[in-house]
Design a protein around this nucleic acid. Sequence first.
DNA 1: AATAGAATGTTTTTT
DNA 2: ACATTCTATT
Length: 740
Amino acid sequence: MSIYDSLNDSQKEAVFTTEGPLLILAGAGSGKTRALTHRIAYLIEEGIARPENIMAITFTNKAAGEMRDRVDNLAGQEAGKVWVATFHSSCVRILRRFISRLGYDNNFVIYDTDDQKTLMKEICKNLNINTKLYKERSLLSAISSAKNELIGPEKFAKIHGGDFSKQKIVEVYKEYQSQLYKNNALDFDDLIFKTVELLETNEDVRDFYQESLRYIMVDEYQDTNTAQFKLVSLLAGKYKNLCVVGDDDQSIYKFRGANIQNILSFETVFPEAKVIKLEQNYRSTKNILHAANEVIRHNEGRKDKTLWTQKEEGEKIILNQFETAYDEAASISKDIRELVENEGYKYSDIAVLYRTNAQSRILEEKLIRDLIPYKIINGINFYQRREIKDMLAYLRTVDNGRDDIAVKRIINVPKRGIGDVTISKVQDYAIRNEYDFFDALSKSREIPLAENTVCRVNSFVNFIHSLRDKLDTVTVRGLLEEIIDETGYLAELKLENTEEAQARIENVEELINKTAEFDERKADEALSEFLSDAMLMTNLDSLDTDTDYVPLMTIHNAKGLEYPKIFLTGMEDGLFPGFMSIGSDDPDELEEERRLCYVALTRAMRSLTITCARQRMVRGETQLNNISRFVTEIPEDMLDMKIKEGRMLGYKGRGSLASAPGRPSAKPFFLEKSYDPKKFEVKKADALSYGVGDTVKHVKFGEGKVMEVLDGGKDFEVTVDFQKAGTKKLFASFAKLQKI
DNA sequence: AATAGAATGTTTTTT
DNA sequence: ACATTCTATT
């Protein structure tokens, strides 16, 4: 018996193919992490590679942690030397050692999204950029996209030099990058970009890593961007032992730079590449898997593969349409109770998924009322919280005096009477003399400032200096505690005496624990190390298995997870797929939404309930939505629609994607009474003052032509083609349309 | 400098 | 609807 006996044939092939470029197309639930970890174990066990010559790269800390555990379990002692890390932390590791070659200091800081925004705001101010025309966010996103494509400021200028509309971006990008350099800071994209630059321009460094990392494995390969692809190509450039694992059907991060071409054309880039498909799914029942297959089949640009399973047929997929989102939530809550009380499910066996975070509120409210334990798994991560960022900014200031963003963040936190006016005076002085902001503060006497202000500034400067003096003798924890004591940060929060302040206090205390942990683990490492760990760290409170609760999360968040029971909510055209992707002229946007839907469906192991509402509040407007086109791509015989009479509104039946303006008027149906107390009564007019073909006026949308009037029983549903706002479906009693 | 009311802009998220 | 960010006021 060997550990490889439990693998299927394709998995075995993937494990035993150790040389040359290898693309493993691993469908959902096909055991790709298993294959990957066994492959690492095999390399070590057979003596093909020493552990320190193996690298496994993932995207998230969580994935890296899981991989680490599994490798350690499979391959024993030696496995600790395998390089298992995320893209970003791998790059930090390389850059901490060699970035001086690029002119940065080795104790560079990492700027997160918040810091980037702060910096960008300043740049826009200095360059007199009209932020109404050029939003900080879109400027940053343009820069990020450029960096993901390995286009630096100069190259960007060359490419877009002739494009007048891009001139501002060219200018901003250049300034942004030089500010980062001045602050000895790298943003997340730079971590990859600069590592690529380093390896490209320094042959000895490249050679060092190519020799050292002879076998490279990349997980979730479909999520890589161009820069990340370049990075692994460079690292694997000598021995070409690059094994990538991914599923093009689960590529859902285009919006943050993922280049699906990386996986689709892997064989073109590496003509000698071997391709292995893992198509046996070990997760879902036949019904669920076939439904998912049917949906994803509608995408054009994909590698051909069809998942299959030996599992039983299983239950049909339940499809429920409700009148309102409140009814939807009530039904889900009731179903969860039922499943737990009568069908042996634990709360933690059940997950509720949605497209947008905004949908969680209604669900949450209902679950609270019904006393169902739940937890919203959201993105707001620990290290991004205000109080934590404040504390880190202090540490950053101590660590790297060039980090202007950090200094400015905490110079008046807690309040020291150093306001915007003072800050901009110091800033002007700093720019005139080419000082760092902190150095300018140290010379506050030379700036025309009020005597009082000079005093305050000096006491801040002295405080930071006193902390720096202790750097060599004190632990990170000691440093942090001194900061907290001296600034009275916690004391101030305690005075507030609110629930929110209490939470902040607990967070700061948690940060103290983190520093203590760090000190114990890496006694000899510098403050810079703690800070980059912190900047690259995210949600600490991911999944704790001790408590039994229903997780609520976005579909993006659910990737990589599986649950016996899934509730897929808000499956409505306009919400999922969202307006943006429906209206887009880029067909790939809709395909990406469909992939997202595929990810959602394939999370379910035994049972899946799809829900939607006819009527939903979106951004303060009540919208009427049809059932998601993706649902209509699931063959009807796999669905249990629970419809007593007629067809479900918006359900156009098998595979039909055609928009059907003249669809039959179905009566809305109710599975149960609406519970919403806020719900207002609708008075249906006996007759409308307008009809099809009339021109009407709406308060918000302006003038439009009535395309269709449907008697929904309770109210009239009117479809109007507005000249400016496009076609909308409205309830007559809400819309208050005026005939013209 | 601090605060309260107005304007704004709203998929998805990791690092 | 709602949260964040901006502006105008004291």
